[in-house]
Write a protein that binds this DNA or RNA. Structure first.
Lengths: 239, 239
DNA sequence: ATTTGTGAAACGTTTCACAGCG
DNA sequence: CGCTGTGAAACGTTTCACAAAT
């Protein structure tokens, strides 16, 4: 019942593109906390991220008023607020499907826990992987158990890291077990029912779109200086 | 000199979002070729991909006229046309930076060659990785050689698969060597000079944005039937 | 003085709808 | 008749610019 809209914007009207930017705000704000900042203006935060200050203010305004005029935003508080908006003030169990090279890299990645996720179940098709333990102590189970285990554990999110020919079946099994959010690494369009969220991780497409801008007959652009300034520790700020 | 615009749309006016969709069109069209299709209408292609037919027609219209009224598009020809537009009718050497779990998974992935890419150089910081050969026979070199090797090999694209604290340095080294397109897997904002293209692979952000839609207190949505139809082999199409 | 939150304008993208071609 | 290519309209997103708050 505790919804994060403050009455003005029904949740279903908030653009998804705004939602997708919030994790970047969290990440950057956390870096600012680590650097010793207590408050930040939308201008400074925007400079860090490489977007406009107006965009940050507009994005946040969908959810409430978090800043103070003349002062900016209290960094630690804003992190908590956004984490709450995103339902990240709890941990989410995730089912990892596929324990090949990619799946093993995902299982070994130390970035999930601090991001509110836990690889709670792992599945694979290959007999030689079954029964293996991940570094976190999760056993690899046969893929035929996806639906039943996901359902029994109440898992709501899945990662598809299997070859493209298996991706649709694996996604169907996840959905059958009650999963409503899927991160898909397979280079194929996976169809899911209404009400199931899906995000694609598609490095090949990303690379194939960048080659458009790489003229085959031209040498690299001339060297320019590196860019805007990175976060500096608070204590170094003097003038 | 052989540019892919046919005179009406200068390349610099074509929206990047259109460019980013072209690889999906290629992938889907190739699946249609494999299923025995010779022509396809924008309606059918749109249904396969899950977008509107108007969007496909508009996207393609930026580059020329590839269809025939009353007939649709010749599938094999359209694949070639789009590959040409994207500069994918050649192979691109790519520098992989980082040979940890993720880098090893990337190096082992068999999807690059058919997508016009080749992992041509691999770099890592850890002494125990240096000198190791990838499955494709590429030696892992120390990261201090990134700039010189990339420059010597004429490499134009790089993949950053190192921990976030090293990502900026590695990207700088790539750019110093002449790289102008970077795929970044590190969960940090990497700053690059004007003229360098960058795409982010950010699974954690993708997951953190999906949790917004997973109400913490609600059980999974009721079961619905699986969706639109997948590609069927031509020979099965009868009615 | 500084900075937020937000109407209104500007800009970008998608969809409609249909003339015209095969 | 079926389907493309595309003006024009609709829709979505970003930016401007400023009143109000401290």
């Amino acid at each position: 019942m505790v919804q994060h809209t403050n009455g003005r914007y029904p949740a279903h009207e908030i653009p998804d593109i705004v939602i997708r930017r919030l994790p970047i705000y969290v990440r950057t704000l956390r870096a600012l906390v680590a650097a010793g900042y207590e408050t930040v203006s939308s201008d400074d935060l925007a400079a860090q991220i490489g977007v406009t200050a107006a965009q940050i203010r507009r994005d946040l305004s969908y959810f409430g008023k978090f800043g103070k005029q003349g002062k900016g935003y209290e960094v630690a508080t804003l992190v908590s607020e956004i984490l709450h908006i995103l339902n990240l003030d709890r941990q989410w169990d995730v089912a990892l499907c596929g324990y090949g090279h990619l799946g093993q890299a995902i299982a070994a990645y130390r970035g999930f826990e601090p991001s509110s996720f836990r690889i709670a179940a792992v599945f694979d098709r290959e007999p030689e992987h079954i029964g293996v333990m991940t570094a976190a102590g999760v056993p690899v189970r046969p893929d035929i158990e996806i639906t039943s285990v996901v359902r029994a554990m109440g898992i709501r999110m899945g990662i598809v890291a299997v070859p493209e020919r298996a991706a649709q079946d694996v996604a169907d099994a996840l959905v059958a077990g009650g999963v409503t959010a899927i991160l898909n690494y397979a280079p194929v369009i996976v169809r899911v029912p209404e009400g199931v969220w899906m995000r694609e991780i598609d490095p090949i497409s990303a690379m194939q779109s960048m080659t458009y801008y790489l003229d085959s007959h031209t040498e690299p652009a001339p060297r320019v200086d590196p860019c805007p300034a990175p976060i500096r520790p608070m204590h170094a700020a003097g003038d």
